[in-house]
Computed example of a mutant assay.
Amino acid sequence: MSQHPDWLAIVRGGAPLVVSLPHTGTDIPAEYENGLVSPWLARKDADWWIERLYDFAVGLGATAIRTAISRTVIDVNREPSGISLYPGQATTELSPTTTFDGESLYEPGTEPSAEQIAERRARFFDPYHAALRTEIERLRAQHSNIVVYDCHSIRSVIPRLFEGTLPHFNIGTNGGTACAPELSDAIETICIGSGFSHVVDGRFKGGYITRSLGHPEAGVHAVQMELACRGYMKEPLGPVAEDEWPTPYDEDYAAPMRAALTPILQTCLTFARSKA
């Protein structure tokens, strides 16, 4: 088995499902701390506890890929060229300089340069995507179709990014191009029956991972699931302060959403195995 960096965790399974965890990391190597306003702000927008919420996935035979590096260092779900995936809408960059709420992450004049961003990309972004491609190729050699399921979460109320309160389940398929409609329809059906609110290709249509890897005509179906944090953690709605965010992971509180996510991943497996 090939070696990979210690910040990159890969658990290999044989099922036709790759689970990507690109934003759960909170590690910021010391060489990237220069100029940051505060450690808390730098980690504020992590996808908190998602790796625990989905820890059942490997038991289903899925392959799980996770980076421990904070998205503040480099966001592995952004277009590497720096082009916005959501033109005309507020978003954060490949190496973010603001939080989702618009707060500056760096003291003035200390933002990472183009050369520094290129180094971060080569060190962290490129290996993450190489790992995704390697596992996709490995599984496609065994299965006619596979599903890449990209796991995310975000606070429910962030006026800078979207109006109102975000639905609990935000299914992203890049406007139906990243996966077969049968798959997104099946996932939506589970969401409808869960009692949680949902939307398909709403504010979050899928980031770079979904858009670059989803090629249903080639047997690779990609779906992004952006969860509103209130669905699985005790989230104070609206602005949050350092002493209240993130709230601890509570298994009992998270259980109803986890109970819906389990059949969603099982449906991804059923779909992949049913396709010739």
Rank of each mutant, 00 (worst) to 15 (best):
L41A: 04
K275D: 10
L41P: 00
P181A: 11
F100A: 15
V18I: 14
G164I: 05
A118N: 10
E33D: 13
V76K: 05
R155T: 07
P112T: 10
D150M: 05
P216D: 11
T177R: 12
E226F: 13
S212V: 00
T270G: 14
H215L: 12
S113T: 15
Y128G: 01
G193C: 02
T63R: 06
N77L: 14
Y253K: 09
T210I: 11
T247A: 15
A254V: 05
E33K: 15
A9W: 15
E217Y: 07
E188N: 02
P127R: 01
D201C: 04
R140K: 11
G25I: 01
W40M: 07
V240G: 07
T98K: 09
D47T: 11
Y232Q: 07
G214I: 03
G164P: 04
I146K: 05
A15R: 03
R78P: 06
G88D: 01
D150E: 10
H152I: 13
G176F: 10
R123W: 02
P112N: 09
E242M: 06
G102F: 15
L41S: 02
M257A: 04
G219E: 06
S212F: 00
L105T: 06
G231D: 03
L213D: 00
F56G: 09
E115H: 11
P5E: 11
D126C: 05
E79Q: 10
F125E: 09
N170P: 09
T270F: 06
R121C: 13
C179A: 11
T24V: 15
D45C: 11
N145T: 10
F271S: 03
I192S: 01
Y128K: 07
F271D: 07
T26M: 13
G25R: 02
T72D: 08
T72C: 11
M225L: 15
A241K: 09
T99V: 12
P87F: 04
Q89H: 11
E188A: 10
I154D: 06
G25D: 02
P248V: 08
R66C: 14
V148I: 06
S156E: 10
E51A: 14
H221G: 10
T267C: 14
D47K: 12
Y54Q: 05
P181N: 11
T173M: 04
D150A: 04
W40S: 09
P87L: 03
S197M: 02
R66D: 07
S38W: 08
H129G: 00
Y249L: 04
P159G: 04
S81N: 04
Q3P: 05
S212A: 08
E111V: 05
Y128F: 09
Y32G: 08
G231A: 12
T67I: 09
F124S: 01
E33I: 10
W40I: 09
R66S: 15
Q142W: 00
I171T: 14
P216Y: 14
A9Y: 14
G238H: 13
